[in-house]
C-alpha cells in the first residue's frame, strides 16, 4: 500500500514536470536563448554581421562604449522620467476606473467594463497613430478642445516641444495602461470583504477614510503586483514612442528600448546593441528584484 502511494507520488511528480515542459520550451526559445545570444554578442565587435565566430573579441569595450555615450544617459533619464509619470498616472487612473466599475449601478456595470477593456484590445502602434492625429496641431482634437475651452490661444505643438512631447507620450501610454491596471485592480477590489466596508461605515468612517483605511490595505498585494508589472512595461516602452514621436523632437523622447533598437537595426551594430540590451535587462531585473524584496515579502503569499 505504502509502495503504491510512493509510486503514485512519483508518477504525479513526473507528470508535473511534464506539464512544465511546454512552458520551459517556450521560455527557453523565446526568452533565454535570445538573451544568452545577446550576452555573447556583447563581447564581440559585430557590425553588419552576427557571425561572432569570425568577429574580433573586444571584452567589455562595448559596455564601456555604451556607458560612456551621451545617448545612453539621455535615454536613461527620459525612461526614468517617463516611468515615474506613467506608472503613477497609470495606477491612479486604473484605480479610479476600477472603483467606478465596481460601485457603479449594475445597469451600467457591463457597459463600463467594456469601455475599460477596449483600449486594452487596441495594438500599441495603432493606438500611437490615433494619438498622433489627436495631437496634430492642425486638425487634432486635443488642441482644438484646449482652444475652445479657452485654455490655449492656439493649439499647442504637442509633438514639437520636448516637455509637451513627454506629456503626450505619457498620456498616450496611460490611455491603454490605465485599462490594464484597472483590470488588475478590479480583481483586487473583488477580494475586499463587504463586511469590513459595512463595519467601517457603521463605525462612522466616510468614503475617503474607508478607501484609505480598508480598501487600500486589503488590496495592497494587488496594487504592488500591478505596480511591478506596469513599472516593468514602462521601463521597456517602445512602440508608443516609435509611433508617436519617433524619439523626437531631437532626442527628447528617445527611450532605452528605442535607442537600443536604433543601434541594432538602423546602425546594424550588433555588439554595442547587445551590450545595451544586456544593461537594460540587468537594470530592469535589479529594479524588479528590489521591488519584490521591498514590497512582496510583506505579504503572506511570499514564503
Amino acid at each position: 500500500m505504502r509502495q503504491s502511494r510512493l509510486r503514485q507520488g512519483k508518477t504525479y511528480r513526473n507528470r508535473d514536470w511534464g506539464f512544465l515542459i511546454p512552458a520551459f520550451l517556450c521560455l527557453g526559445v523565446f526568452y533565454y536563448y535570445p538573451f544568452i545570444q545577446s550576452a555573447l554578442y556583447s563581447f564581440f565587435r559585430l557590425e553588419y554581421t552576427t557571425d561572432w565566430l569570425h568577429a574580433p573579441f573586444v571584452g567589455v569595450q562595448n559596455y564601456v562604449a555604451v556607458l560612456g555615450s551621451y545617448e545612453f544617459w539621455h535615454s536613461l533619464r527620459f525612461t526614468a522620467l517617463f516611468t515615474l509619470g506613467a506608472v503613477a498616472l497609470d495606477l491612479s487612473l486604473g484605480m479610479l476606473l476600477a472603483l467606478s466599475a465596481y460601485w457603479i449601478h449594475p445597469f451600467f456595470k457591463t457597459l463600463l467594463r467594456i469601455i475599460i477593456i477596449i483600449p486594452w484590445a487596441i495594438p500599441r502602434v495603432i493606438q500611437a497613430s490615433i494619438w498622433r492625429w489627436m495631437f496634430n496641431s492642425d486638425v487634432g482634437i486635443v488642441g482644438t478642445l484646449l482652444v475652445r475651452l479657452g485654455l490655449a490661444e492656439s493649439p499647442p505643438l504637442f509633438l514639437g516641444e520636448p516637455a509637451l512631447a513627454l506629456m503626450s507620450v505619457v498620456m498616450a501610454y496611460v490611455w491603454k495602461g490605465a485599462s490594464i491596471s484597472a483590470v488588475f485592480l478590479m480583481a483586487g477590489l473583488a477580494s475586499v470583504p463587504r463586511e469590513l466596508q459595512e463595519a467601517s461605515r457603521i463605525d462612522g468612517a466616510g468614503g475617503l477614510r474607508r478607501f484609505f483605511s480598508v480598501t487600500v490595505p486589503v488590496m495592497a498585494p494587488t496594487i504592488v503586483i500591478a505596480g511591478l508589472f506596469r513599472t516593468r512595461d514602462a521601463l521597456r516602452v517602445f512602440d508608443v514612442i516609435i509611433g508617436l514621436t519617433g524619439g523626437g523632437p531631437g532626442m527628447a523622447t528617445e527611450s532605452l528600448s528605442t535607442y537600443a533598437y536604433r543601434i541594432y537595426f538602423d546602425f546594424n551594430n550588433y555588439g554595442i546593441g547587445s551590450a545595451y540590451a544586456v544593461i537594460i535587462f540587468i537594470g530592469v531585473a535589479v529594479l524588479s528584484g528590489l521591488y519584490i524584496k521591498r514590497f512582496l515579502e510583506r505579504f503572506e503569499f511570499v514564503k
Partner: peptide
C-alpha cells in the same frame, strides 16, 4: 559608409536645434 547612422545623427541634432533645445 554608415549612412543610416550619419542620417540619424543629423536628424537628432538638426531637430534639436529647430525645436530650440540647443
Amino acid at each position: 559608409v554608415r549612412y543610416s547612422q550619419l542620417s540619424s545623427i543629423l536628424q537628432q541634432e538638426l531637430h534639436s536645434a529647430l525645436t530650440g533645445q540647443q
